[in-house]
Design a protein around this nucleic acid. Sequence first.
DNA 1: TTTTTGTTGACTAAAGTGGTCAACAAATGT
DNA 2: ACATTTGTTGACCACTTTAGTCAACAAAAA
Lengths: 165, 165
Amino acid sequence: MKLSTRARYGTKALLELSLHWGKGPVLLKDIAQRQEIPLQYLEHLIRPLIQAGIIKTTRGARGGISLIKPPKDVRLSEVIQLLEGPIGPVACVDNPELYPRSNLCVTHDIWAELKKAICGVLESTTLEDLVERQKQKWNLKQLKDRQKQYANGRDMKKKNSNKNK
Amino acid sequence: MKLSTRARYGTKALLELSLHWGKGPVLLKDIAQRQEIPLQYLEHLIRPLIQAGIIKTTRGARGGISLIKPPKDVRLSEVIQLLEGPIGPVACVDNPELYPRSNLCVTHDIWAELKKAICGVLESTTLEDLVERQKQKWNLKQLKDRQKQYANGRDMKKKNSNKNK
DNA sequence: TTTTTGTTGACTAAAGTGGTCAACAAATGT
DNA sequence: ACATTTGTTGACCACTTTAGTCAACAAAAA
């Protein structure tokens, strides 16, 4: 009953994007660094999110990835499903058609309840909820530090490219 | 987020034992047959249940395994944990001590909620509940058929051993 | 003492997990 | 045009877990 790193990393990446919502693309490299995810692995694991139209990518300088859907419209259940498949704890709960005997099986009912409980949490949580929680966790000072860090990042790059001239 | 076959098989085996509660040991072979579990695999996977003192074994003819604790005292959460380890969807939720940074991490909080939801279901379900549900599913006739089948099984064995004399 | 039944440890095939490498493709900046 | 920055893609890999199997053994009963 463990989540894979795909689900965990992917959720973290989406949280980063949500915190940056409306401010243009975020570098994969930056996400990887901040969330301690191997860059090359991150590139792979976000692919289903792109295909599902949750995020989009921008290539070239000043590129990166960005959320397409507003954070409040992305439920965790959707994310997890994209990243690691059906949520149900046993296959027969996700594909009842394939298991005709499951009606007779009590354990099946329990696993179905379990799935319901899990989905309950994941469906009622959106990326916006995560952002809200994050903001509550950080105090305002820390929040500003972070914004400053972003700004400095952009400035540093300009400075450096100017230096190289 | 899938349950292993260990958890599913183990639960089914315990359900069999619960249905037979108070009527002596049940043959591993019979459980394996009825629940379609490879016998040799079953022998291995019940080991943690034995060590935890939930079931006991009786060797030799007329042996088998039987529940020690009454079905109402065995929670599914305990069973799952014995069969496949900690229930939490991520390690940092099960061992908060090992992950000092988890306080700062919003995703951690969500996974903790998820664990709570899962445990909620598993802790509130006992083997007795499963038995109750099973009895509701079977109508009385089917239930009697099953008891008869047990009786016949014992008779058949006697008959055969008499024949061989 | 034979038969029945569980015990134990070693072994294995297949799949899943968590990555890495390298060649490529598209934007941007100059 | 061309170099640089970024994402894209497919192949590859080490390691672990899963789901078993085999075979020799140990205890209890008939």
